[in-house]
Amino acid sequence: MSRFLPHPLLSLGLVFVWLLLTRFSLGHLILGTVIAGFAGWAFARIEPDRPRIRAYLPLVRLALVVGLDIIRSNWAVALLMLTNGRHGARNSAFVEIPLRLRDPVGLSLLAMIVTATPGTAWLEYDAETGVLLLHVFDMIETDDWPALICGRYEARLLEAFEE
């Protein structure tokens, strides 16, 4: 299994994309599977470590939470644009957040979440100390953000990838 399919998730995703881009048929399924298997094998030469996912349930719950958060913060940022930043009262700030998460896949997922949510931007991550530098568009309370990122997103990623 691991010899022939070094990256099963990647290959599965590639088959999925291949079938989306072409009409679904048996021929395309076989062709896509062959190409995806080959691509996974080629990718193993670049990146031999496959991502280790311990539990899938936290990821599903995380996806729901993130989906809701993105809708909510889209609305909030759009309102801020329309009202010219609450008529000049909006403050933006840099926030430093110490992270416990060390898994590279988990970190990249966290980066995707933080960046895809309007209002927060991931600027820099220090791999040695694990401190993340975040820029927050609408800063209301200073101590709110580390708790929010850690409790809402990081805890679930830790469950899925490390514990």
Binding site: I70, N74, M81, F137
Partner: peptide, 26 residues
């Protein structure tokens, strides 16, 4: 268009980096 408006309108670069995410998310 609100994201692009923010990109054109906001003052500092670090504020402007948030604006296009409106267009790229929802």
């Amino acid at each position: 268009v609100l994201g692009a408006f923010g990109l054109a309108h906001l003052r500092s670069f670090y504020d402007r980096i948030h604006a296009p995410t409106l267009g790229t998310s929802w």
